[in-house]
Design a protein around this nucleic acid. Structure first.
Lengths: 225, 225
DNA sequence: TCAAAAGTGTTAGATTTACACCCATGA
DNA sequence: TCATGGGTGTAAATCTAACACTTTTGA
């Protein structure tokens, strides 16, 4: 092994996952009581260390898989958090990622085994280290992203009603919107298509189910530059 | 020293700076030929390693100061780059930051001592490792940011003409805008105020100089959430 | 029969875009 | 005197926001 940079110090690098879900009309994050020292018992994001033979992105994917049993989740980097004393034990920098999952896709037994819970983002408890900051930043980024890319369907079942979609938008943006204006806008999005299926669980009358069609989605012009 | 995480591997962490400037109507970045192995001679961002006793942000500030002699530059994190083989020597993850400086504030001798040049962002050469990716992402983030926060004045002298400001917007956004519409919009921004001073360097007739007034700038509502 | 959610259009106001000419000056 | 960049307003088009009633059905 060469040692080009041997005069500098090395540090541990971890990943922390902000996993967003949408349930019962609320945006939620998956957090648990920390099961290791330092900080045992404090509310914390789920995370892991970056191994010698994986990229940071890979470490995040792996960590998400460990926790949820799901692959190919929508995942974006939030940023690196590196205050000297952010970890009470040793110098550890952490790279945060947010991910979107459909709560129903997550096996509830697996969830309990990992000791994590879906907590309403508006009712977060005090948290370990800088995890609150990570969540706040992730939330801001996700809110911006959802404006320019159709990622909301990743928080919903593959078939969803317009009311569900609207509630999701409202939860993400923190304010209610007009039903008629909302539906007008949705109608103009070619990538959200109506099916002939009807959901009767949410109302007596029943509501049409919609689905996301990725074929009719042209990527955001932003990515062409 | 405690050793909570001793079973995991440590890595080097560096910072890389994407320094944006605006000159002769073009958005530019400060890059130089790499003066160390591995990668000696390739075009590269200016960077440095994160020390044991500084946060990543502090390491970025320090690195920016080393290079430019300037403090309190506008600086934002771009993200962590951590592919396994991104550094041909050893495992190094790097956290990229972009900064905005007024080209005229940067002493040209200092610039030459560090062997860096202002390169038009539209004419970037092939670059070391993932530095092109860093620049691309930084540029995207900066373009988004400039829409919601008045940061453009950081790329200009403290007094500037409306034409300069317009050219800057055009360079950042990559498209020309209508002069009358642009000036109309600027007039509505309370934080850009007209002075009685006139700049005669850009035209025979002379143009009024404007300045940014931070007192009349209310922070973006985004930051209130 | 009634409570609860689904579904549907129009209008006023605000914002955005397109567009062309005169001014002041130094060379 | 003329070439160069500085400076100004209006009208059409588009987009956004506000707003209320009918439908269906299970309990």
């Amino acid at each position: 092994m060469t040692t080009y940079y041997s005069e500098y110090s090395k540090v541990y690098v971890s990943v922390d996952c902000i996993i967003f879900g949408f349930d019962e009309g609320h945006l939620r994050v998956l957090i648990g009581k920390r099961q290791m020292d330092p900080g045992r018992g404090e509310w914390s994001l789920y995370g892991g260390f970056v191994g010698a033979n994986e990229s940071i992105d890979d470490a995040a994917s792996r960590t998400l898989f460990e926790l949820t049993g799901l692959r190919n989740l929508y995942m974006r980097q939030v940023g690196a958090f590196g205050n000297i004393d952010r970890d009470p034990g040793e110098r550890v920098i952490s790279v945060a990622y947010y991910a979107l999952i459909n709560v129903k896709d997550y096996d509830d037994n697996l969830r309990r085994e990992h000791g994590v819970e879906w907590v309403n983002i508006k009712q977060l408890p005090p948290m370990y280290s800088d995890h609150r900051d990570m969540i706040r930043k992730a939330r801001r980024m996700m809110r911006e992203k959802i404006k320019s890319e159709p990622i909301s369907f990743r928080l919903l079942p593959s078939l969803f009603t317009l009311t569900q979609l609207q509630r999701l938008y409202e939860a993400v943006n923190g304010e209610e919107v007009d039903k008629r204006n909302f539906r007008k806008r949705v109608k103009e999005m070619e990538f959200i298509e109506k099916t002939e299926l009807i959901d009767k669980t949410g109302s007596k009358r029943g509501a049409y189910l919609y689905r996301f069609n990725s074929n009719t989605y042209d990527e955001d012009p932003i990515f062409k530059l």
